[in-house]
Simulated scan of single mutants.
Amino acid sequence: MSINKIKSVGRQPLNVVVYEHIKTAIIEGDIEPGTRLTETKVSEQMNVSTTPVREAFRRLASEGLVKIIPWRGAIVQEFTDTEITEVYQCRESLEMLAVELATEQIDAEGIRKLYALVEQSNETTDFTKYVDINSEIHNTLLHYANNRTLNNLLSQLNDVIYHNRNLSSYSDVRRAEIHEEHLQIVSSIEKRDKTAASEAMRIHVNNGFEYIKARLTKNEQPKIQKPDSV
């Protein structure tokens, strides 16, 4: 009798477990923005060595969730209403330009890649992988926009953008909305409809902005602009 179909028990490395626990605590609000985290105190609390904690801090910093201060540890990121508003004002214009340029230059392979990424983001149950996939969707558009200055400008907004993608990844409702918004963007690109693609991106960015405002202030979920059906 074969045992090949018996699934193995997943065992995550300690550094991944530590990272996931800290990340979840930050996103769910158990650790408030502005809180100072030190390797020593966190390792004592979690009953682990400082090494996996240090690795977790680095990963969280790359995702915009903490800011590492030399010799002081990590500070849980907090952004003012003004900072978030200004970032999204810039992001809206830059992302709309990116999708317009990409629509003009993308090839069939690029469109297939975008559809595949959208499907992968809809299927994954891993929060970190979800953020990575959604970042890759926008990075693919930037690649086909083929504008180095535009890429550099958007990279300056990454702390807020990555931070907010992580917050959104924990909401089933927002994830479903993002899936539909991405489908609308890619469908418009496939049709070479630059105007529709730009408008779909505007709605996507603004819906993200409204969600983050509500999420950070713990208000009721805002009304979402619904794109036309694909």
Rank of each mutant, 00 (worst) to 15 (best):
I189K: 04
D159I: 06
Y162T: 10
H204E: 11
N166V: 03
L183R: 14
K194H: 08
N164E: 14
D159F: 05
K194G: 06
H179T: 11
I185G: 01
A197V: 02
T195K: 15
A176K: 12
R175K: 15
N158E: 13
S187M: 08
M201L: 12
I161Y: 09
V173W: 13
E199C: 08
H182R: 07
V186M: 00
V186N: 01
N158W: 02
M201A: 13
H163T: 03
Q156I: 11
S169K: 08
Q156G: 15
D159E: 14
L183F: 09
R175Q: 11
S169I: 03
R165N: 12
S155R: 11
R202E: 13
E190Q: 13
Y162W: 07
Q184H: 15
S168N: 06
Q156P: 05
N166W: 00
N207R: 01
H182C: 10
E190N: 13
H182N: 15
E199M: 12
H163L: 12
V173D: 14
L153S: 13
Y162D: 07
N158M: 11
S155D: 12
A200W: 05
I203D: 11
R165V: 00
E180F: 03
S168G: 11
N164P: 03
L167C: 05
S188L: 02
S168K: 07
E177I: 08
N164C: 11
T195F: 13
Y170S: 03
A196N: 07
H204V: 09
R174N: 09
M201Y: 06
V186C: 00
V205T: 14
R192T: 09
R175L: 08
D159S: 04
T195N: 14
M201P: 08
K191Y: 09
N158S: 14
A176P: 04
V186D: 06
M201I: 10
A176F: 06
H204Q: 09
T195Q: 15
I178G: 02
N164D: 15
S168C: 08
V186I: 11
R175E: 02
H182A: 03
R165D: 01
I161D: 00
V160Q: 06
K194F: 09
E190W: 05
A176S: 14
L167I: 14
A176D: 08
V160D: 04
V186S: 03
I185S: 01
